[in-house]
Design a protein around this nucleic acid. Structure first.
Lengths: 122, 122
DNA sequence: CAATATATCGTGTTACGCAAGGTATATTAC
DNA sequence: GTAATATACCTTGCGTAACACGATATATTG
């Protein structure tokens, strides 16, 4: 609406996050287990909101990872408090984390190289 | 259906490209005009295939950019050869290129920072 | 005219991120 | 005791981008 007449080029961020979210979550689980809600706030905090997602976005990701056996799940029901579902990396998850990190790295390098090109051609 | 038990984690590359393709194309047009087929081969060549796309992927991107007035179009029909559609950046396109480059940079920095985290833990 | 190369464009599929809403349990307020 | 708030999980539906696949059209070569 602020973009009068134009095409409103909104969240490219949303598209950029595509495909990197799994990597992000796996990486956040690398130090140890965490539960869903915790991951959301961790992500927001550690990236100053740059990679922020809502829980409605995260849970499907976690479910995908679980189904792919990249994470394992443990319920914890304390005497006080709402039950929490803790996720931790499986061995396959750690391998996948390494693999995806490499893929990301390759991609990012190619992008950066391309974007740096404007110094020759001006 | 083809996914029998195993998780078959295929093209994350495809997802990573999401949202960056517009930026890529704008950047490739920065030095001067080019036509569609040319952009495809340029992209493949300059990134050693890391960001390769097919023409079926590229043309919709170009159409989006044209509709958003980020690129302008010129047909050239030579006496010999198939007509070519040349694209060049508009002023708005140059601004958008700068804007998207910044967005990419912010995103990539956040990702790299997050991925570098594994040196404290472990 | 058949085959190949160049070049553009259209259709249908897939899958992801997200807004929006729903459920359930515990704590605090009155 | 019940209303409100916080915590924590999950589901549905939508929009949209990338891609595979195929169609179209022109020019060259045999």
């Amino acid at each position: 609406m602020a973009d009068s007449g134009g095409s409103e080029r909104k969240g490219i961020d949303r598209e950029l996050r595509r495909g990197s979210l799994e990597l992000i979550v796996l990486q956040l689980l690398a130090p140890g287990e965490a539960y869903g809600y915790e991951i959301v706030s961790k992500l927001t905090a550690e990236t100053n909101g740059a990679l922020e997602v809502t829980d409605g976005t995260l849970y499907p990701v976690l479910y995908r990872l679980e189904r792919a056996a990249l994470v394992a799940v443990r319920w914890e029901t304390p005497e006080r408090g709402v039950p929490r579902k803790y996720y931790r990396l499986t061995d396959a998850g750690r391998e996948e984390l390494i693999r995806l990190t490499h893929e990301w790295s390759t991609f990012a390098k190619a992008m950066n190289k391309l974007l740096r090109r404007d110094r020759e051609a001006k």
